[in-house]
Simulated scan of single mutants.
Amino acid sequence: MDVTEGTVRKICTDAVFERGERYLAEDRILDIHRVDTTVAAVVSGSRQYDVRVDLEADGFDPWCDCPYDGPEACKHVVAVLLRCADDCPPDEGDRLDAALEAADADDLQNFLRETLATDAAVRDRFFARFGESTTRSVDDLRAAIDRKFEETNPDYFVVFEPIDFSGLFDLASEYRDQGRYASAATVYRALVESLDDNMERVDGAYDHFSQAFTRALDEYVDCVAAGDIDTDEAADAVAFLEDRATSGSQLLSEHFERAATELEESLTERRDQ
């Protein structure tokens, strides 16, 4: 997708576009770099915000960790896209490929192992890509997600700003791409449970959390339906959704009821085939 003023205007309101222009003019983009079609940047606002866009995706697939919950893209995304339209950062993809090709195999393996030893998120993605099912339970993953809520606003119960769940969604997608549906379902269920438990404390960026919940719930149903599970496991999955419909947040009860019905129908259809 070409990055022009016109294409940027299509993904934001007029007011947000003007604020994005002002942010660009005020040199609020502190850091920006590009690998292939992905541009990552840091934009200064009331604090520093991380921004990612895909220059070839329809609508640029924007992501920002700011609290904006209005329609379409935020001013930080707009500022980054307008910068790309005016002066796109050089693509470091070829440089990265060249460095990888030139690297000694043992040195590269040592570097990778050091990185994996210190970065749990990357380590999980590595195991998911190269043939390992998850060893983390739903409770373990949910506790880690709950900590994100606690750390976002430690002095108050209320959460005002969005939380970045992209690493967990990427991990679940990796498992799913490898055909390990049970592992993917474990990650999605942890997201569903934590978001359900914490939704009452959300008082800002509600659309962000609602969209994350809906995505995790839909993906959980799809993975359970696609996985190789026995009758008891299928019954437990449906029971989990039905229980949450009555015991979880009232804001989300209808979503759980719908998901339970869809999962039961999918499992019944599979058994009848």
Rank of each mutant, 00 (worst) to 15 (best):
R19F: 01
V138F: 11
A85S: 04
R142C: 08
A15I: 05
L195E: 02
D65A: 11
D104V: 00
V221S: 10
F213V: 12
A120C: 05
E174M: 03
E26C: 01
A143G: 07
E72L: 08
A103W: 01
D218Q: 15
C12G: 01
E233Y: 06
A226I: 09
Y220N: 06
R189N: 08
A99G: 03
F149C: 06
D197W: 03
R123D: 13
V238M: 01
R136L: 15
D232G: 08
D222K: 15
G45M: 00
G93Y: 12
G59R: 08
A245H: 07
D272L: 04
D236K: 09
R83Q: 07
Y23A: 00
E21G: 02
G131M: 11
R215K: 13
D222W: 15
L195K: 03
E151Q: 08
L96K: 09
G204S: 12
A144N: 07
F169L: 13
R142E: 13
L263D: 01
M199A: 06
G93I: 10
E132A: 15
E242I: 05
S247Q: 15
V35L: 13
V77F: 03
T214A: 09
N153T: 10
D119M: 08
V138E: 10
G20A: 01
V224K: 13
R9N: 01
A184M: 10
E161K: 12
D164H: 13
Q178I: 13
E200K: 13
A237Y: 01
D14T: 11
V35T: 14
C66V: 06
